Simulated scan of single mutants.
Amino acid sequence: MTALEDKLSGWTGPSSDTEQEKQDRTERMIREAVRNHAEFANCSLKVYAKGSYANNTNVRSDSDVDIAVQCTNALYWNEVTPGVKPVGTPYTGPWTPARLRSELKTALEAKFPGQVDSSGSTAFTIKSGSARVDADVVPCFDHRYYFSPDNFLEGTKVFKTDNSSLLNYPDQQKANGNLKNQRTNQRYKKAVRIMKRLENAMVTAGVHREVPSFFVECLVYNIPDAVLNLSTWTELVRGTLGHIYNQLEGSESIAVDGRWREVNECKYLFDASQKWTRSDGRDFALAGWNYLGYKS
């Protein structure tokens, strides 16, 4: 067990200093690309990091950066029941989803010639160089989900090129992750890194398929604080894998009162819109259990 404890302890750390420097440089260059694009002079933009890089849960094998370029000129919204949102004046300005995407593409290609992949439906992917890491840059807009005129969730709305859209809640993800990290004596984010490195190791060994990094982070977020506060990494990981496997047995319909949520707590982790299922979580936990040599 000492060898396993040493392995897991070694998996708790963030990206190396060199990798962090590359991530920071990538973010800085993307900010410069947006700032230097003349057409954005009359567009109110927020440019910020999100995802595992911003939340300090990334590891070297997943060290790309996610950057949001958020237009605040227009507000999109949904409401829990019709008429809840306060009456306002619709936006009629020039910054449509199509124009924001087009101008951002031009800005990125000017800064990173020949390195921007715009074929994806959601993000522009910037290929890494010797001094940079891969980056996904997502154009988005302000969004609110109204429960009452004074009670709403603030997030972002992404318009995809396939005419669909998605909602993200990066501020809530960051805040909730930090709070859970504080409640668990700084062990939550270390546990996330362990589980991401476990996933990488299993993929390299050919014993399990790739699992999205965000999904892994959400699985760990739903682990009880008491499990994450266990005294050794060996016990913590055993408890984490066991909890995932046992609690995700059966269908989502049997967990109506205890449904797992994304780290942002604004969206359910398992519903028809997600790319993963409860079975995917159980498969990952079982493979991890066997890979690390735990016994029943």
Rank of each mutant, 00 (worst) to 15 (best):
H143V: 02
L100K: 04
E249K: 12
G177H: 02
F147P: 02
Y268R: 10
Y53P: 00
T12H: 04
V220Q: 06
E199P: 02
I67R: 03
E5I: 03
N200T: 15
T277C: 06
N151K: 10
G13D: 11
Y53M: 07
L108I: 08
T184E: 05
T234R: 09
S52Q: 06
K127G: 09
E217Q: 11
K157A: 01
N73M: 14
Y221K: 09
E21A: 13
G93P: 00
V216Q: 04
T2E: 15
S213G: 03
M195K: 00
N42E: 13
A41N: 14
L179F: 01
V34S: 05
V59L: 02
T184L: 06
L108S: 04
N290T: 10
V80S: 15
S16P: 00
W233E: 13
P86H: 11
F147A: 12
S16H: 03
I30A: 04
K7W: 10
G281E: 03
E39W: 05
Y268W: 13
R193A: 04
T18R: 10
T18H: 09
L236N: 08
V59K: 00
S296N: 14
A255E: 10
D150S: 14
K275G: 10
R259A: 14
V47L: 07
P97N: 08
S63Y: 01
A74R: 15
S121G: 04
N222P: 08
Y53Q: 07
L100I: 06
E154R: 13
L167C: 01
Y91I: 08
R60G: 13
E79D: 07
Q23I: 08
V87K: 15
Y221C: 05
T184Y: 04
L248R: 04
N55I: 00
D257W: 11
Q20C: 10
K127C: 01
L104M: 10
P170D: 03
A131Y: 08
M195R: 00
L248P: 00
T89R: 13
A287F: 05
A175Y: 08
H143M: 02
R132K: 11
T26Q: 11
R193V: 00
N229I: 09
E199N: 12
M29R: 15
Q182G: 09
S102T: 13
T156K: 10
N185F: 10
D271V: 07
Q115G: 00
T92C: 09
A98Y: 10
N200H: 15
Y294V: 04
W233S: 07
K174C: 03
S253Q: 14
L75I: 12
V87W: 09
A135W: 02
D134W: 11
L167T: 08
L292W: 06
Q115R: 15
C218R: 01
R187S: 06
F112E: 01
K7D: 05
D162F: 06
T232K: 07
R28Y: 11
K190M: 14
I126E: 01
R132C: 01
T122F: 01
N264W: 01
T156I: 15
Q186L: 09
N178C: 00
S102Y: 12
R101N: 02
V237M: 08
T12M: 11
G258Y: 06
K190E: 15
D271E: 10
L75T: 12
W77F: 15
P82R: 11
K105Q: 13
T81Y: 13
